[in-house]
Amino acid sequence: MAKVLVTNSQLTCAHAPLTVRSSAALTVNGNPVLLVTDFRAATFACTTVTPAGGPCKKLLPFTAGVSTVLKVGGQPVVLATAAALTDASAANAGKFTVVDAAQTILDAK
């Protein structure tokens, strides 16, 4: 079991904060949970220029940390164990990182 991520979770692209918004009906302490589809519109504050030509701009598909049991509106929630690369990963090992799930109430697998 792992903590479910919410909108105030602390997330980074390994260089800078990552902001993800959600309008999921399920909330924890008033903060909507984050769904896999929410990450398509994530906002990167990354300004690190990589040898590949620029900063991280988008997240590639998750390789871990997507719930297999908890879904909201048919979309799986994302867990604190989430792993993914960014579009700048090939050049600089840019990785999606969960710094803090920002909640201790809701777990899922």
Rank of each mutant, 00 (worst) to 15 (best):
P32C: 07
N29P: 03
V78W: 02
T43V: 15
A101Y: 01
F39P: 11
S89G: 15
A108K: 00
K71T: 15
G94S: 13
K109C: 09
D38F: 07
T63Q: 08
K58Y: 12
A90S: 11
G65M: 05
T97V: 14
A91C: 12
L34P: 10
T86Y: 03
V4I: 09
H15W: 01
T97A: 14
G65R: 02
L35Q: 14
D38H: 10
T68Q: 14
A42K: 12
P17M: 03
D87G: 10
C13H: 07
L60Y: 07
L11E: 07
L11I: 04
V99A: 03
V49Y: 07
R40V: 04
A82L: 05
A2Y: 08
F62H: 06
A90Y: 09
A90H: 07
A101G: 05
T86F: 05
F44K: 06
A52L: 11
T37P: 02
A25R: 13
V78K: 04
D100E: 02
M1K: 06
T27A: 13
S9C: 09
A64L: 03
A14G: 06
F96T: 05
T37N: 15
P55S: 14
T63V: 14
A84H: 09
A24D: 11
M1D: 14
A14I: 01
A108D: 13
A88I: 04
A88S: 15
L79R: 01
V33W: 05
S22L: 07
I105S: 14
D100Y: 02
A64M: 05
A88H: 03
V72S: 09
V66P: 10
L60K: 11
T86A: 08
N29F: 04
S67E: 10
L5Q: 04
Q10M: 04
P17G: 10
S9L: 04
G30D: 13
D107K: 03
V77Q: 11
S67P: 13
L34Q: 08
L18R: 07
C13D: 15
V99E: 14
A16I: 02
C13R: 03
G74H: 08
N8Q: 10
A16D: 09
F62N: 08
A2L: 00
K58A: 11
Q103L: 03
V49P: 02
T12Y: 00
L70R: 06
T50L: 13
V66W: 09
L35T: 06
P61M: 11
C13S: 14
P32L: 10
A93M: 08
P17S: 05
L35N: 09
T43E: 13
P32N: 11
S89K: 02
V28R: 02
T12F: 02
A2K: 05
T19P: 00
S67M: 09
L34C: 07
G54S: 07
A52V: 11
P17A: 08
T47H: 12
T63Y: 02
A80T: 01
V6G: 02
V28I: 13
L5P: 10
